[in-house]
């Protein structure tokens, strides 16, 4: 009985120590990436290539989802607002919810599953096929050559993708409410413009998406680099990237929102 209890407590302790060790390892890894990112900036083409893979190729999914999210927001917002006779406020609703919350969050979730998982799989496979080790043999630092450009490519792409998501979303809301349903176009835009503040809403949204970009790409490159060099290990690491990123995005979003929008106006 006592022995069983001891084994149980040991297993709990082992897990806690393990996860904290992994967290510290990840932090040290990211700091190392930041330290070694100078060569990437000197050879900017490395980062450009990653912006192409992480950003440009994610455009389709981001734009299409943004359009549909905006259309749904417009439709649902109209349904509810017209009960109170204030359907012209639908522009405000669509713009504020997209710029403040949905733009950064959904774009980051899509980015994590589209680009983050690809990054993890690529780095994990490079490790499994010993390409990273081979680079090390040739005195090329794999962190500076492979990891850092991917990290910065993701960090640059994310705010731009979120902004484009918000714009297509607002366009989708405009399409549904003004063009299809027939809300007055003038009040749609003017109410939106009087409610959306540049510093308070738009800049805060961009800051949010910047944070998400750092977190998602950091998780993706770390999971890839840390993946066990087997087929199963890579597949697990990819799954972990998506799950951890999604949880981190949603949790961080709450914290950032609590700091940014505390109703002080």
């Amino acid at each position: 009985m006592v022995k069983q209890l001891k084994v149980f407590i040991e297993s709990v302790g082992h897990r806690v120590v393990d996860s904290i060790w992994r967290l510290g390892y990840a932090t040290r890894f990211i700091l190392l990436v930041l330290l070694k990112s100078v060569p990437g900036f000197l050879r900017f083409r490395l980062i450009t290539r990653e912006i192409y893979f992480a950003g440009v190729l994610s455009l389709i999914i981001i734009l299409v989802s943004g359009l549909f999210v905006g259309m749904v927001l417009g439709l649902q917002g109209y349904e509810t607002l017209q009960k109170f006779g204030s359907e012209s406020a639908v522009g405000t609703l669509v713009a504020l919810s997209l710029v403040r919350e949905l733009g950064p969050v959904i774009a980051a979730l899509l980015f994590a599953s589209r680009a983050g998982s690809a990054m993890t799989a690529e780095i994990g496979l490079m490790k499994a096929t010993e390409q990273l080790a081979a680079m090390g043999m040739m005195a090329i630092d794999p962190i500076a050559r492979i990891i850092a450009p991917r990290f910065w490519g993701g960090v640059f792409s994310m705010p731009l993708l979120a902004a484009m998501f918000s714009v297509t979303g607002i366009f989708g809301g405009y399409l549904v409410t003004v063009v299809f349903i027939g809300v007055d176009e003038g009040s749609f835009w003017s109410q939106m413009q009087s409610a959306v503040d540049f510093r308070y809403d738009i800049v805060n949204g961009v800051i949010k998406s910047g944070f998400f970009g750092v977190v998602v790409t950091a998780i993706a490159v770390f999971e890839g680099f840390d993946a066990p060099p087997t087929a199963e290990g890579v597949s697990r690491a990819t799954t972990r990237t998506v799950v951890t990123s999604a949880l981190a995005i949603l949790g961080l979003d709450f914290v950032l929102t609590a700091f940014m929008f505390r109703g002080v106006s």
């Binding site: 713009a95 918000s166 413009q193 959306v196 503040d197 540049f198 738009i202």
Partner: peptide
């Protein structure tokens, strides 16, 4: 997109 947000949706 950022400019559009600032000029068209926002009150810049």
């Amino acid at each position: 997109a950022l400019l559009i947000l600032g000029l068209k949706a926002g009150n810049l």
